[in-house]
Each structure stands twice: as C-alpha cells, then as structure tokens.
Design a protein around this nucleic acid. Structure first.
Ligand SMILES: [Zn+2]
Ligand SMILES: [Zn+2]
Ligand SMILES: [Zn+2]
Ligand SMILES: [Zn+2]
Lengths: 146, 146
DNA sequence: ACCTTATTGATAATATTTTTCATTAAGCTT
DNA sequence: AAGCTTAATGAAAAATATTATCAATAAGGT
C-alpha cells in the first residue's frame, strides 16, 4: 500500500511538505535529522517551514511510514519506512542505512528474559552496526558522506 | 571492577557530581534524562550544576558505566551500566528497566544480512519492550511511575 | 598541609523543539 | 471547474535543551 493511501485512509491529506519529506527520505542513503531535511529541501528550492518538517515526521513516524534509527554515536535520524517486521543496519563510518527483513529468532532469549524478569515481552528494537561495502574499500580514508 | 576504579585507571577523578549521578542511576528503576537527574539531585539537597550532569553522563557513557536506552515512545534516558555483553528490557507502561545478559544468537541473521547487503557487521543494538510484573497487575490503571 | 590541574558551576551563547494563530491549500461537493 | 470546509502550513514567538567560556573549586598526589 502506498504511503499516500495510508495517509488518505486515515483521513490525513497528502500535502506538499509530507510529500517532500517522504520522497527525500526514500532517496536518502543515510538517516536524516529534521534540520538536515529542512536544509536540503530549502536549498533545492522547494520551500517549506521547519515546523512542517517536524510535524510531517511526527505523523509519518506514527503511521510507520518513516522509522527512527539510532546512529552508533547516539544521535538519531529518520529513514524511509518499510512494511512488516524489519530492522536496519547502519554503517559506523558513513551512516549509510539499509533495511532488512526481521527474520531473527529471539524466542529463546525472550523466554529466558521473561522467566528471569517476569516481564511480558511484546516488542523489540534491533539494529545492526557495521561497515558498508563502500567504506570497506576506503577503510583508511576519513569519513565521507557518499 | 568498580566504577570508581574505571575512572581512576583512565586518569579521571572520582568527583562529587560523577558520584551523585552514578549512585542515582544505580538506584533508579527507570531511565532518567539529564534534567530529571538534575532535578532529583537538586531537590535532595545535593547541589550540582546542570552542566555537570551533562558532562558526567557524557564521560560515564563513554566509559560504559552508564547506558543510553530508548523508551518505546522514542525518548531516551540513562541507566546504570553493566559489564560485558548485555541489553535492556523496558516496560512500555512505566518505563521500568532491567538489564539482562546478551545470550542471544544472531549469527544466522548476521550471516544473512552480510550476504544481502555486503556490510560487515560488528555490533548491534537490542532492546526488548514489554510489561513489567507490577504493571501486569494494574494493567487497567493509568500510567504510574512506581 | 600544600601543589597541580582536572573539574565544577554561573553565565552566556546556541541549538532544538513546541506553541500560537492567521493564511493557505487539499480534497470533497456541487 | 468553481466553491466550500477544514486540515495543514508557515512566520514568529516562546519554551527547552545543549554547548561554550572561564574564574573558582576540589581531587588526588607529594
Ligand atoms: Zn559506509
Ligand atoms: Zn525483529
Ligand atoms: Zn511497568
Ligand atoms: Zn546482544
């Protein structure tokens, strides 16, 4: 289902700012902060308010159309969303991010943790960190965003 | 190894603010933000500057003496650290957090993702979310921080 | 008890996020 | 296609959060 339809079906409008943010994130290889999104779009001539970026991200995240990911350094950014159970792998060097299907089996772990803590587990956050193919090649070079 | 020794061995001093922050997080059942830490300590009479809280957390996190955890709503907070491979489970209702040993086996997943993406995986972020024992009992009640 | 210097904390400076509210435009109805 | 309704935007201000400065303090060693 397209992101436009997700918005429509929930009664939200497919507005300019939402479209700009969605399309930018879909193209971006790296997670982007609200400020980065605002700056890139502004410099591309497509004007929109900073506030709209925040509001668009908030809504899109709520609908699962974009995801928040956590950089290895602790900062966070937004990436395009994906349907179904999935996670993200981030490059520690250039922050390039790829989505992968959540095929992991955590049932043993969850069983053990539930027994140990008496929590009832319902959900999880998983990200992998590593070095992307491009950065493996230039592994001696300084960080570049490419 | 005690956190005091970790600091000393790296040439850092065991200062008042660092001790206050470490001891508070060690006692706290929930992750705390810098502001919460500052406020609780201030109200307890133990005065320290907000800036010192930030600096203490930055250093302690760098040394692995405290960990950053991400609440289900996206906000983050600090919890007392733990040696070795471990993760955290958070209550979606009251944010109570418990540390557990990282005994999960992600090798199948990592192998698959490495093959699919050509990344080289070195690290991961994992958190479990659920409902803590206390909140299971009062599951019909509004959120309480207890 | 005294030195040395890392660390603190008051203040100011930045940066980030949220509120407000008049204006705009998305999508529905003729 | 024009008009209507109201969600959504954006400029500005307000509120929060974080970082930088630098004189004063105190931790740890002698
Ligand atoms: Zn890379
Ligand atoms: Zn998963
Ligand atoms: Zn709970
Ligand atoms: Zn693990």
């Amino acid at each position: 289902m397209s992101w436009q339809k997700v918005l429509s079906d929930k009664g939200y409008r497919v507005s300019g700012p939402r479209r700009l943010v969605m399309e930018l994130l879909a193209e971006s290889a790296q997670p982007m902060t609200p400020l980065e999104i605002y700056q890139v779009l502004s410099q591309s001539g497509r004007a929109l308010g900073m506030v709209s970026v925040y509001r668009a991200l908030e809504l899109l995240a709520e609908l699962g159309l974009v995801c928040v990911v956590y950089n290895p350094n602790g900062s966070s950014g937004y990436v395009a969303g994906s349907a179904g159970h999935h996670h993200h792998i981030l490059c520690k060097r250039c922050h390039r991010t790829i989505t992968f299907a959540g095929s992991e089996d955590l049932s043993d772990l969850i069983r053990r943790v539930e027994a140990e803590t008496n929590f009832r587990v319902s959900d999880h956050l998983l990200q992998l960190y590593g070095i992307c193919p491009k950065c493996q090649k230039i592994s001696a070079d300084p960080v570049e965003d490419n």
